[in-house]
């Protein structure tokens, strides 16, 4: 018996491309603009969201038959908030610098629409294992976009990757300059837009008639 049935595998891979939370569902844009100036915070953010979303999905899925429908949002928020506090404390303890850079955006994972969206749309109606896979898949789809955007923004905006200078000093002497627009949030939006453009040009069935 294989661990992943083909249906499970779809839960995992679909959000990476054809149902990407950022480029197709256009959720979680706010944090995508805010934490993608440098690669490191973007990766930390992706991992944090992965942890929160996967666990929250499992917990809500386990509780799904006992949660009264009328207060389900509150229950979901309690679960997410508890997990986010755990993440926040771990980041503060082990990667304090990054935690400082991310500032409020770790706390704002609570309001990340992707998480609430997956809990509402998937975890409340599915068993824990598919819910876990769905959470991992969606968080990965979110993370991939974050990392791609952060890669280009850090490379072109600061000339570095993960804090290491990759554009040789000679380029600067020849008159090359870092692109200050890349550091500003509007450019993150434009980079996300270019990714959406490329994705739609590659898979035509995404284009609305």
């Amino acid at each position: 018996m294989s661990l992943f049935s083909s249906k499970d595998l779809k839960l995992l891979t679909n959000p990476l491309n054809m149902n990407n939370p950022i480029t197709i569902q256009v959720l979680g844009i706010c944090s995508a603009l805010a934490v993608t100036v440098k690669l490191e915070p973007a990766v930390v953010m992706s991992v944090s969201v992965l942890f929160v979303l996967a666990l929250a999905n499992v917990i809500i899925s386990l509780l799904r038959n006992t949660i009264p429908t009328r207060i389900r949002i509150i229950v979901q928020l309690v679960v997410i908030a508890s997990l986010v506090i755990v993440v926040d404390q771990v980041l503060k303890a082990f990667v304090y610098d990054v935690s400082k850079q991310l500032s409020v955006f770790v706390g704002l994972i609570i309001t990340n629409c992707i998480i609430m969206g997956r809990l509402e749309a998937f975890a409340l109606g599915n068993k824990p294992w598919p819910a876990f896979l769905d959470g991992v898949g969606n968080a990965a789809g979110y993370g991939v976009i974050l990392i791609v955007v952060a890669f280009f923004r850090e490379l072109l905006g600061s000339g570095t990757i993960w804090g290491f200078q990759v554009i040789p000093e000679g380029f600067y002497e020849m008159g090359y300059a870092n692109n200050g627009l890349m550091i500003l949030p509007p450019m993150a939006l434009i980079v996300v837009g270019i990714i959406i453009w490329i994705q739609r040009a590659r898979s035509r069935d995404l284009i609305e008639s």
């Binding site: 300059a177 692109n179 200050g180 627009l181 890349m182 500003l184």
Partner: peptide, 10 residues
């Protein structure tokens, strides 16, 4: 505008 925000020193 691109030049102005990307390369303000120039």
């Amino acid at each position: 505008a691109f030049l102005f925000f990307a390369y303000p020193s120039k």
